[in-house]
Design a protein around this nucleic acid. Structure first.
Lengths: 347, 347
DNA sequence: ATGGTTATTACAATCGATTGCAGACAGGCT
DNA sequence: AGCCTGTCTGCAATCGATTGTAATAACCAT
């Protein structure tokens, strides 16, 4: 193959005998009406024949719009975030945008440097799945003046739009379900309070318990990982007499609760009922199948992407918060309490 | 906030009283030696003070290098591909590149249009996780002249480099394990033959069976999804008398085999032992915990990214193939055959 | 003083597309 | 004929950074 020079607008212009600006207008849907239709057709035909590939980099430089969206995640491989990313990419590609993804972990200085890198690429907007309740990364984005939407978690001060699940409502579903099964002494393995999910789920749990006239018992996990669920569960089982149910802030933590129960030789759901949160893939296959609060993560991603594109299009700084309604999925890890009378005497 | 004009090289040049080209050289590590050190320091200080953010779009246009890599996946949310993506992003960001990801499904015309979109953005290279054995997307990339590396799967004609697992070897491990447990009638739920993984695992299974003097029994699944594993498993159980073991081409298919067994009231591993492939997250938690062939997907992603960056740097078209060695992970879904004598009489 | 380095810096073109402005032309109207 | 309107196209600047080449100055040796 001869290293033929790239086909540019100018080259197309030479080939068709018109000025590059005319070629540009003919090839752009929105400006095509400015060009005589026969000329436009001729140009389009030539573009096809010569294999013209528009150079988006040049267009970005001129227009200031890259049609690139930065997506910052704490962990791509996490089964919670991958469907979110999937939903995001789906909408973005429908709208002619492409996601530039960064797997930034939990260190805010790393996240900030990813933000800088992405803004250097002149992304048109950012989606953050990483934020904590007090988040300086958001401040950084605001300082850079780039549109931002948060997903799954949100920050305390509502400075930017967000798409989240109704975490308190989810816990309410969980507590109600446990109470409906006869449980009265129900503990909570809480998520980290510096995350909105951890905080709101703890509050939601507490409120729901109080509403039923029950005493809340919370032990907080250090992170949303399976291993971090074991110790809090053991603490609950040790310090709360008559405990028959544990609600975890997250499915992974719930699996940690399973581990804790197993290590004590206690059975789920016979001795202790367990509820998770997220309904991540495969938790219907663990044994016992996990009862959990389902969040539509893919839909969350889709809505976040749409919201961001809307804000970019309208130039609005409207600070919307979209709250998705979660749903309880009952499986095998929760059961009716055994011998409620006998247990009552213990309390 | 005043809408202050963006800080550009030219503005920095005005501020420091030098020419833009000098600023450019001072800010670039590799050309800094061309600038008097005191001047360079002054420029760098000014850049910091004024909050200069280099515009990569402009740099890309001039240099032809975007430091963007396109990644095309069949399904981001699939627990096999997300760790691959994770490994890719890890290496790319280490090297100052960013991944632009496309969730392109299995339709090759869709994939092709994603390739076009990405090359329009002038990505420096592409990583494809989507390829089939006869793949016209690869042809398309080659025609576009963009460096490509394949990951997880490869195409028949070795036109481009690839990083894959030794699929045949993985099946060999699986068959040997089954045979070691006393199984003699072992079926295979195969993956689609148009994918290298499906093809090689079927061949690997067949070869390993022959080596042991056993007869291969294959039923092919339509796709690598759980639901597609049920029917082939049922067919095997029906048509192969004395079947005591099934090796699936993939963990999801293995879960489909579980479903099939359950629907027939057969127990795993008591009646039938099952082996999967991939060791995707959570399969250690299903019941029974799945014995499977582990592939280091994250590492696969890392190696693919490195290989691509190498090829970009050296301009080489060397067509490397990196083959990773898989590992058998024995869990609860495989067991020693019961009453081998009694079964033998059945055959 | 002259010629020859070497070290710095400036100049200007360039990457490829977009777009405000102005010019050219045709047709309609008075 | 003269004027106006509207349609189409060309011109040229621009986005911001990079880089080959030339110019300048400084320095050394002869």
């Amino acid at each position: 193959m001869a290293p033929s020079p790239p086909v540019t607008l100018k080259r197309l212009a030479d080939a068709t005998g018109v000025h590059p600006s005319t070629v540009s207008r003919a090839l752009n849907e929105k400006t095509r009406h400015l060009v005589a239709s026969d000329v436009a057709e001729r140009i389009i035909a030539a573009a096809g024949a010569m294999g013209y590939r528009p150079n988006r980099v040049a267009a970005s430089l001129r227009t200031g719009q890259s049609r690139l969206i930065g997506v910052i995640l704490p962990d791509i491989a996490n089964p919670v975030f991958s469907p979110i990313l999937s939903g995001i990419t789906e909408v973005l590609s429908e709208e002619g945008y492409s996601p530039v993804v960064a797997d930034a972990g939990n260190d805010s200085s790393v996240q900030t440097s990813f933000v800088d890198n992405l803004t250097n690429h002149r992304v048109d907007g950012l989606i953050l799945a990483t934020v904590t309740r007090q988040d300086n990364v958001v401040s950084h984005c605001l300082a850079r003046g780039v549109p931002v939407v948060l997903v799954n978690r949100f920050e305390q001060r509502g400075r930017v739009s967000a798409v989240v699940s109704d975490d308190a409502q989810g816990m309410c579903l969980a507590v109600d379900h446990m109470v409906g099964l006869g449980h009265r002494v129900i503990g909570h393995v809480g998520g980290p309070r510096h995350l909105s999910t951890g905080d709101l789920r703890q509050r939601g749990y507490t409120d729901a318990m109080r509403r039923h006239g029950l005493t809340p018992h919370i032990e907080e996990a250090a992170a949303y990982i399976r291993e971090a669920g074991v110790a809090p569960a053991l603490r609950l089982l040790e310090r709360v007499p008559g405990l028959t149910a544990i609600i975890a802030a997250n499915d992974l933590l719930a699996l940690g609760v399973y581990d804790a129960l197993q290590s004590l030789g206690r059975s789920c759901p016979r001795d202790v009922s367990v509820i998770g949160h997220n309904d991540m893939p495969m938790v219907d296959l663990v044994s016992p199948a996990l009862t959990t609060v389902r969040i539509g993560h893919r839909d969350m991603g889709r809505k976040a992407a749409r919201l961001l594109l809307d804000e970019i299009a309208t130039g609005a700084d409207t600070r919307t918060r979209i709250v998705l309604t979660p749903e309880l999925v009952v499986r095998g890890s929760t059961g009716r309490i055994l011998q409620p009378a006998a247990r009552k005497s213990l309390v």
